[in-house]
Nucleic acid binder design. Structure first.
Lengths: 349, 349
DNA sequence: GTGATTTATGCAAACGTTTGCATAAATGTG
DNA sequence: CACATTTATGCAAACGTTTGCATAAATCAC
């Protein structure tokens, strides 16, 4: 390839390297004004059909596209939705957590379909107070989806007061001001506890960190039922990092497995770990201890025994998040969306 | 809230709504020129320490941050890395595929740490020829990471000729021109076949779509060994969507399970499905049929029997991708990075 | 105290679009 | 054919930064 040498003397338009970097360049080539090119590429009807097509063809031929930064700056719109994953209460690995990842996948589908681009950002709120304001105020995004409230409920509430186009995945609290989409975690907790008790358990344990609101609500729901049905329940706090969780569960189960006969795991991931630790200890599931998880991840049906769990419809969740956000972008003050969780009975309870 | 009415006559600075939207606004308040504010916020040493701190404090107080679009436009740098997932050979659900999702999580970690933002884009190349050019030419990103070659090898090669800051996750072919990071898939295939044969299998099957280069290489590696060790191997093509895969495997196994005694699954996900189908059919693993997967996803150790598989170090992969990309952003013409896969023996072979 | 150097700031020109307004050309009306 | 209307284009002013260059102020050397 001796493009460079050809470049100088050449008159062959095919041979010279594309000098068309701006709309003005293209305008020169097309013999029109930049404004016309802009309108033509935007497909506006104000420009003559003939010229429009000619310009579009020219653009295609030269592989030209208008600079997005300039466009966004001028139009004060970015066409980008921020997706932010706060790692508040536990910074390890959470972004790799199956549930969030699956949700993100569906979000990508939904947003792409609506013509939006996605700016993904992980933040560690404990290290950076202004994580949300900074993202919103950056001028890079038209709206934001927050995946998980983590321990940032207060901060999110605060921001919601002055910023409409934000939707959050998480738990719905009575009277909260930010728009949230999520399963009815408390109901889910009730379903789980009901199932455990129906399967014969009376001494329950809840495995999972109760700091995040989602998990706290699940626990609260389970307590509702346990209390009203005469069962006992104790919360065993774990951390989200898989390695830590395994260790914590292992220790707890080794010492206390005789004291419980039913486990409600705050997530399927925790349930899997629990299942594995019980197997190591030689404790039979569901005979000696019953387990109910939460999420219904795809693998839930592939464990042995297959996991009984509370299903969240992730796809519906993603759809809801995007739908509400788009409406908020139009200025509508949308209500939150609470999705019904569903008990899926398999082999562990 | 009667802000509007207060706004007019009010002199109380606390009461009026923030009028500080631009650097010029802040400059007026601070009694300096916009240029100085810009320099102060950028932390440049050209500006007096005293004024710099004063301006920074002022900015913090008003919650001001410079508009990124304008900044990016002016500086001709975006600080954004594009991450694109092409869904070439199978459009269903691939973005939710555990492996890619885990990789994405680690990428997010690495890029965030280096101060880059991430623009995530899913594309369906079959519907949109120019998926890659369009992304690169959009002016929104400084560089791009392509997750998976899919069936787009040729297109990627083509783009690589004229665009340096691109790194691809995938398979390395002899003499290819684009910079790739990925496991040595062929070697991985060899390890898998060796293990199956060492465990006693002689009639092997490969489960997975052989169109993507990664998978093709895994299959080729397995063939190397099968041929040299006197075992047979046949490829059984599946599609990536889990539902389809299950159906395809189910049909194949029902009819042909007697003809094979070892399965090399192109991915752990496929291996899980296979395991499940075999269980349904009452075929013992590993006694009647042995299985080796590929990836070593976290759940691999949680199935029963735990999955024997070929491990890819995803974190190292993500690190490599980012490292190479950053070097290419500096203008360096980096070589590809081939990571060694590792056999992890568990219960299925 | 004069001139040379350093330091801190201001000025104004980009960056590449989009779009309201003005105008020229084309069409229609009587 | 003169005038009113529609249609297609051009002009130029934003959008909000950053940064090279010029200059004013402060420091220094002698």
């Amino acid at each position: 390839m001796n493009r460079k040498s050809e470049l100088e003397g050449s008159i062959d338009p095919e041979a010279k390297v594309r000098p068309i970097r701006t709309i003005t360049d293209l305008a020169r080539v097309a013999g029109v004004s930049p404004g016309t090119v802009s309108r033509a590429l935007a497909g506006k009807s104000l420009v003559n059909t003939k010229t429009r097509e000619r310009i579009q063809a020219l653009a295609r031929e030269h592989g030209f596209q208008p600079n997005q930064m300039a466009s966004k700056l001028r139009r004060q719109k970015t066409g980008v939705i921020g997706v932010v994953i706060p790692l508040g209460h536990d910074r390890e690995q959470q972004v790799s957590d199956s549930f969030f990842m699956t949700l993100l996948g569906h979000l990508a589908d939904e947003l792409t379909e609506k013509g939006y681009d996605i700016m993904l950002r992980r933040v560690i709120p404990d290290r950076d107070e202004d994580w949300l304001d900074r993202f919103i105020g950056s001028g890079m995004i038209d709206g934001v989806i927050v995946i998980g409230q983590s321990n940032q409920f207060a901060r999110i509430e605060e921001v919601a007061d002055g910023y409409l186009p934000m939707v959050v995945w998480g738990n719905h609290q009575e009277g909260q001001r930010h728009c949230v989409v999520g399963a009815d975690n408390r109901l889910g907790g009730r379903l789980a506890a009901e199932r455990l008790i129906a399967a014969g358990a009376t001494r329950l344990a809840f495995f999972g960190d109760t700091a995040p609101f989602e998990f706290a609500a699940r626990y609260a729901g389970a307590c509702d039922i346990a209390n009203s049905m005469g069962a006992t329940i104790t919360a065993v706090s774990t951390h989200l990092s898989p390695a830590q969780t395994a260790q914590e569960l292992s220790r707890f189960l080794a010492e206390h497995h005789g004291e419980i006969d039913g486990v409600f795991a705050a997530s399927d991931t925790i349930a899997f770990t629990c299942l594995q630790e019980l197997r190591k200890l030689g404790i039979a599931v569901p005979d000696q201890i019953k387990i109910v998880g939460f999420d219904d991840l795809p693998i839930a049906e592939q464990t042995l025994p297959a996991l009984t769990t509370i299903r969240q419809d992730i796809q519906a969740g993603a759809h809801g998040l995007v739908d509400l956000l788009l409406r908020r972008l139009q200025g509508e003050e949308t209500e939150s969306l609470v999705l019904p969780p569903k008990l899926v009975v398999r082999g562990t309870a």
